[in-house]
Design a protein around this nucleic acid. Structure first.
Length: 980
RNA sequence: GCGCAUGUGGCGUAAUUGGUAGCCGCACCAGACUUAGGAUCUGGCGGGGAAACCCGUGGGGGUUCGAGUCCCUCCAUGCGCACCA
């Protein structure tokens, strides 16, 4: 009886769903284990085989942990707000909720077929009002909080208000200094806005005109939007933002506490970009204004030859002299109008302009020219730098270009030519630097900061590259921000009136005035009297939250997904704590994974949760690439009269190729499009050939199905396919003399590893694989491909090996086509095979080495087949250890063995070391490190005896030639090495 | 430019963590069976050589009785960040 995977898999999937086999309990005496996959965004394209890779790995781990006696939480849901659904809505007018639901249904269908052990009762969707109600609630908590840098904690804004009011603190309002108690309501609100974690602030943001919205830094790659690749500009805008910068130090330091991959940690460190240095104030000549700079090299302060301001710097225009005004303004305007991308492309082009103004060197009193240059970034530090061309590459370039002085203040540790480059190393001895002379760089930095502070010129300072995260999006399909504006002051909605539902609108486009889509709603006001959203009242915020809002806390909602009173109950939060194992792609390194850590810290400070970090361990699965199949093509239409190129031409009914080769066509007819097999490309000059992708399902082991390809390419008329020794033309095979032949040849394609994408015709869908080979086979093969964390190409060709393994496994439990296991006692050899496998598989799972355990299963089944093993005592434990990987067939075999389902409730068998003990070992014997022969020796004998028996061995004589060896190394149970 | 990975047969990979390089598969080759098939089974399969042997884990050097594994150096590929003061 052949294994019917289609029926069996469907049955068990239904069983698991019906019996809720994988439901996690919030109250359990078992230890908890939380396995989480990164949220998928349900795109219209559905899943390809790369997507489930991480899900399969986490599912194996979750199932393994259950067998090991853990109460496992393994949920799944959807990050269902997002740009693509909205772009689609703009094109078609269909509400994004409809497309999103359809996409989710398709995802679910695909996921279900793979046999995951998700607890679907806990499914969440970020676009569900029951979910985003709590996203809005968290926003309100963050709005009502500030970061107390003294306690290093997020605290209630009320505490800050109390502090201001009790101390009657001074505040700067529009250039005036006022006491807190003298401020009016609006002024107080403005002051507080500078402290709130969720705040409305003016800042340069990434504006993407094509998408009509602002983007966070991590959503911009190479100056264009990550989604869609549209140009991005810098724009000064008032925006809702999240004060993630307050958490920079904690986000950085706590990386040491979590078991995440080095590459992710490193990416986060770079993104946070901590640098230590000093801020220093420069007085401006004949002015009350001062310029504050940030530098990591205060030691080079005596090497300053000019200051440079970013074009956006608030003083840039103000301090410019009247003679220079026109020039500077023109420069600033030009710099401002360039897109991020243009600016990045011109990284090596120097440009700047002198303001005509001088600053005073705080130590020497020298006059220092102040320049404006776009190599200085407005968003970093103070937007102004002290330029030390001798010791900073960028300043050097600028100074060289504009012939500004270059003052050396450090003696380099090696040879260095200051006329060519700067010496940027933090090494050397200070010169020409007054009180710093003679010090090395490190000491000079310390001493100089001390001096700066002593003289009150500035102070030691730490700066971060990390920017606050822009939180508002000028888009429709996101969580509405629960804020309304009363007399210009932002107020949050009452918590008990959440959720603030997305309003219905006529079009998913900005208004004619350029307001976000939500402004299209005529019912988007907060009526304080009726406490409801209404046609009149105070205007409600019209931007929506970004995609990362919902995903910044979803791991918490899974703990208590249906709670109507809280985002999750204290009990549930306390029981599940945080994620034990998180698996997902590395593309979220600086986006989601930083934001979720930030929200976790904020919620912890506010006392809502117990944990400081969302996930203890994180694994990034590698990307699965596609294997494209390409064919060589010479696409020009060729008539019998054409003489096309030097390497070949068609004349009469012949095609002339390189090296005097001739192909005779069957009739005196035109052919169009010459295709040439990958093993025959040297028949043509390469410049005549181009590679085109062919659908991979029309190939088998890099051989193209010619008839099918021709049908697929109905645009082709009379193509000729040239193979090594024959050709295919109009459905028949011919030799090069033009005689029809019966034996077909292989037309080979050229495989190439590329990203999986529709346009490359190389997408493999899990559904197709499952239809043909089954879900267990897909799961095993995905794991078998290679280490989880490595990127690797998917090639369906290899799946036959895994498919054969499943058949072989099934046969072990069958005799004469019917199920049969014997109750006889197993042999030593059988026990050894089983226990060796249990040990290996357990060790492999625990170190997430899933590919090697699949190999072990294959070895195990091969050995048991050779042993003709049909013992229950062997085959039952085998089914259990295999069940995390291939759950369907394992359940079926478990049932056939006479057990009550489900195998998920079984216990992972313990391996018994005593079965693995050997009494003899075949020693490899090396002579001078090279293996020469093998000798079988008992393991009990002593090192001396091993040495004697090896030296006495017949094969040894050839090498020793009778003389005594210099040295003999014996590693018992491993190796013997004889040094001659 | 900086950072992080990764380099092993035709391909995906493995190697008890310093101890027999190539396990397990794919592909390929040969054979068996046969209602010719993209099924199953058996055997072979890093390169060179008739063989003895020699060469071989990106290149070069080193440590060691012994290196895919450790150290130095160079090269290549992939990813991330990038005028961050």
């Amino acid at each position: 009886m052949e294994y019917n995977f289609r029926e069996t898999e469907k049955n068990w999937q239904k069983y698991w769903a019906d019996k809720k086999t994988f439901r996690a309990e919030n109250n359990s005496s078992k230890p908890k284990y939380y396995v989480l996959d990164m949220f998928p965004y349900p795109s219209g394209a559905g899943l390809h085989v790369g997507h489930p890779l991480g899900y399969i790995a986490s599912d194996i781990y979750a199932r393994y942990k259950r067998l090991k006696g853990f109460n496992v939480l393994h949920p799944m849901g959807y990050d269902s707000f997002g740009l693509p659904a909205e772009q689609y809505a703009i094109q078609t007018g269909q509400h994004p909720a409809i497309t999103t639901d359809a996409n989710i249904a398709r995802y679910r269908e695909q996921l279900d077929k793979i046999g995951f052990s998700f607890d679907w009762d806990r499914e969440v969707r970020t676009s569900d009002p029951n979910y985003y109600r709590w996203t809005q609630w968290i926003f309100i908590q963050l709005f009502n909080s500030w970061y107390n840098s003294e306690t290093n904690k997020t605290e209630s804004i009320d505490k800050l208000i109390q502090k201001f009011s009790s101390k009657n603190t001074e505040h700067h309002i529009n250039g005036n200094t006022k006491k807190w108690n003298e401020l009016n309501e609006k002024e107080k609100a403005d002051v507080l806005m500078d402290y709130r974690i969720a705040y409305l602030g003016e800042a340069y943001v990434n504006w993407c005109p094509a998408l009509g919205t602002v983007l966070a830094n991590d959503e911009v790659k190479d100056g264009v939007s990550e989604r869609g690749g549209y140009p991005v500009e810098r724009k000064l805008m008032k925006q809702w933002s999240m004060r993630i910068t307050a958490y920079a130090d904690r986000l950085l330091n706590d990386l040491e506490k979590i078991d995440w991959s080095d590459s992710i940690k490193e990416a986060q460190r770079n993104w946070i970009g901590k640098s230590e240095g000093a801020s220093l104030e420069f007085k401006i000549q004949n002015s009350d204004d001062t310029i504050e700079v940030f530098t990591t090299r205060p030691d080079t302060v005596f090497g300053i030859s000019f200051l440079t301001l970013a074009p956006e710097h608030e003083l840039a225009e103000k301090i410019t002299t009247s003679e220079k005004k026109q020039e500077v303004e023109a420069y600033i305007a030009k710099a401002r109008n360039r897109s991020e991308r243009e600016r990045q492309a011109e990284v090596n082009t120097v440009s700047g302009v002198f303001t005509g103004t001088y600053a005073i060197h705080p130590f020497t009193g020298e006059e220092i020219p102040v320049w404006v240059g776009d190599y200085v970034l407005a968003g970093y530090g103070t937007g102004a730098v002290m330029a030390v061309p001798a010791h900073d590459e960028r300043d050097f370039r600028f100074a060289s270009f504009y012939h500004l002085p270059i003052k050396q203040v450090i003696i380099p540790t090696g040879e260095h030519d200051f006329s060519k480059t700067s010496w940027d190393e933090k090494e050397g001895t200070l010169i020409n630097s007054s009180f710093l002379d003679g010090l090395n760089v490190k000491d000079a930095i310390k001493k100089c900061i001390a001096e700066i502070e002593k003289r009150n010129l500035g102070k030691g300072k730490i700066n971060y590259r990390l920017r606050d995260a822009v939180f508002g999006r000028q888009r429709y399909w996101g969580e509405p921000i629960p804020v309304y504006y009363k007399n210009g002051i932002a107020h949050t909605l009452p918590e008990n009136k959440l959720p603030l539902h997305l309003p219905a609108i006529d079009k998913f486009l900005p208004t004619e005035e350029g307001e976000p889509p939500l402004a299209r709603s005529d019912k988007w006001f907060w009526n304080e009297e009726t406490q409801s959203v209404d046609k009149t009242g105070f205007p409600i915020e019209t931007t929506t939250m970004p995609g990362w809002a919902g995903s910044s806390w979803y791991y918490l909602r899974y703990m208590d997904a249906h709670n109507k009173k809280e985002f999750a109950s204290a009990d549930a939060l306390n029981y599940w704590q945080n994620v034990d194992l998180y698996i997902g792609g590395s593309e979220h390194a600086t986006g989601h994974l930083l934001y979720v850590r930030f929200w976790t810290k904020a919620l912890k400070d506010l006392g809502y949760i117990q944990v400081e970090e969302p996930a203890k361990k994180l694994i990034n699965q590698g990307m699965i690439q596609g294997v494209s199949e390409k064919i060589y093509w010479q696409g020009k239409t060729l008539n019998p009269k054409d003489t096309v190129s030097i390497s070949y031409h068609i004349g009469g009914n012949r095609i002339y190729l390189k090296n005097n080769m001739t192909i005779v066509l069957p009739k005196n007819e035109a052919c169009e499009s010459i295709f040439i097999s990958a093993d025959a490309i040297d028949y043509l000059d390469s410049e005549n050939l181009s590679l085109i992708n062919v659908p991979i399902n029309l190939t088998q082991n890099s051989e193209l199905e010619l008839n099918e390809y021709k049908n697929f390419r109905n645009d082709l008329t009379r193509p000729i396919f040239i193979c090594k020794n024959s050709y295919w033309f109009e459905g028949a095979w011919y030799n090069f003399d033009g005689n029809q032949i019966q034996v077909p040849s292989k037309f080979l394609t050229k495989p190439e590893v590329e990203k999986m994408s529709k346009s490359k015709w190389n997408v493999v869908n899990p559904d197709e694989v499952i239809e043909k080979y089954g879900a267990d086979c897909l799961r095993l093969y995905e794991m078998f491909l290679g280490p989880l964390e490595q990127s690797k190409p998917w090639n369906t060709n290899g799946i036959a090996g895994v498919s054969g393994f499943i058949r072989k496994l099934w046969k072990l439990y069958h005799s004469n086509d019917s199920f049969y296991v014997s109750d006889d006692a197993p042999t030593q050899a059988e026990l050894k095979t089983l226990h060796k496998t249990i040990k290996k598989v357990q060790e492999d799972i625990e170190k997430f080495s899933f590919n090697t355990s699949v190999s072990s299963f294959m070895i195990c089944v091969n050995e048991l087949t050779d042993l003709k093993c049909n013992k229950r005592a062997i085959l039952e434990p085998l089914a259990i250890i295999l069940s995390p990987y291939a759950p369907h067939i394992a359940e079926e075999l478990w049932k056939l063995c006479g057990h009550e389902p489900s195998i998920a409730h079984a216990e992972f068998p313990a391996y018994n070391e005593s079965y693995l003990v050997e009494d003899a070992f075949e020693y490899p014997v090396s002579v001078n490190g090279k293996t020469r022969f093998k000798i079988n020796l008992p393991l009990q004998i002593s090192k001396d005896e091993i040495e004697q028996r090896v030296l006495a061995a017949e094969e040894m004589q050839k090498w020793t030639n009778g003389s005594a060896p210099k040295k003999v190394i014996v590693v018992p149970g491993r190796i013997v090495n004889v040094v001659i």
